[in-house]
Amino acid sequence: MKLDPRQAGQSRRDLAAAIRNLRLASGLSGERLALRCGMSQSKVSRIETGRTLPSATDVQQILNALGVDDDTQEELISLARTANAEYQDVRASVRRGLHYRQRELASLETNAKRIRFFMPTLVTGLLQVPEYMRAAMSPPVDPASGDVSRAVAFKLERQSLLHDKSKRLEFVLTESAIRWRLCEPSVMALQLDHLVSVSRIPHVRLGVLPLSAPVGEGAYHTFTVYDRTLVTIEMFTGRVVLLDPKDIDHYQKLYSYFSERAAFDDDARSLLQGWAEGFRADG
């Protein structure tokens, strides 16, 4: 079964119905099934009615308790993974207004205590200076038709998060992301100076992964880990939200892997300052 995040809502309903039908076919009561798979009866009931979204692990436990054949198990576990993914279309956000996307991100950030950002391509909005921000929100290919000025204002407002001492914010940026010439050299130098300043905020940890570092894992895409709750993956046309604990655990490990190979503190600032001077020389 192909994983298609856009089908997550239908998959959730199909999964709930399939689990309920399998239990009924087995002749087990909800209480007996709950005992067999080590869950509460209320949780089994909520899964069957679609009020609770089960993880792939939950589904595996239920199917093992029901004695389901391997092919059915594989199909339903794949369905569970699809149900635990949500696709958010960028174009839909633009139709509502670019600032709505900033509100959505602000909501995620408000509810999390520890947020980890991995950026292999561009500097994230929380770290952008206004000039860089405008360039990032006005791409030459399929430019957004929304109110860029209003979106920039919301983005700058979101940056107050950097000074919220109740949060722990961690960033790993690759050299490619930092030095990608999105703007003219003077703006790029200003952007790098800003990264140096942010790196000095006590509850912010900012790392730089230079191209000279040996890294055995590919930096395929931007991702953000919110606590142990969810992961977002950025693409050109949208964002995928992952909710399955196994997916979240995988991305936590990925972040740790990249973080362990990055430069931090004075080492990171030395790299940033050197690249900033290079941009100034080009300007």
Rank of each mutant, 00 (worst) to 15 (best):
D247Q: 14
V44M: 04
V204W: 05
S29A: 01
E175L: 04
C37N: 03
S186N: 15
S93E: 03
M1P: 15
V141Q: 11
G50W: 08
R168D: 13
I47K: 04
A80C: 07
G30P: 13
L3D: 05
K246D: 15
R46W: 01
P54T: 05
H163A: 03
D249F: 02
S149Q: 09
L66S: 01
T49C: 08
A8V: 01
R179V: 15
E157D: 13
M188S: 02
Q159G: 11
A17L: 13
R12V: 02
K43P: 10
F279L: 06
G67D: 11
R13A: 03
R134K: 08
R280K: 10
D266E: 10
P202H: 00
F171R: 01
H203E: 11
L22Y: 06
G283W: 11
I201S: 01
E74P: 14
L122N: 00
T72W: 02
W275R: 02
L192T: 05
F264G: 00
Q191Y: 06
L79S: 03
R46I: 04
V231F: 01
Q191R: 06
G125K: 00
S270W: 12
S145C: 00
R116W: 04
F223D: 06
R179G: 04
D249S: 12
P214Y: 08
T57W: 08
T72Q: 08
P140I: 02
L66A: 04
S256P: 08
L3F: 09
L122D: 03
A177M: 01
Q273K: 09
S160G: 14
G125D: 07
V215G: 04
H221P: 13
T49A: 08
E74Y: 13
S197V: 13
D247L: 02
R20P: 15
A177H: 02
L127V: 14
F171L: 05
I19Q: 02
A263E: 09
T229F: 10
L22V: 02
G216F: 11
D142E: 11
L271Y: 06
F258L: 00
V129K: 04
Q273W: 05
K113M: 10
S186T: 12
R261H: 15
R20C: 11
A25S: 07
Q41N: 03
A56E: 10
Q273N: 11
S212E: 12
L105E: 14
V129T: 14
R96A: 12
I115G: 05
K2Y: 05
F223V: 06
V240I: 13
L127E: 07
D249H: 08
I115L: 05
A219K: 07
L24T: 13
R101T: 12
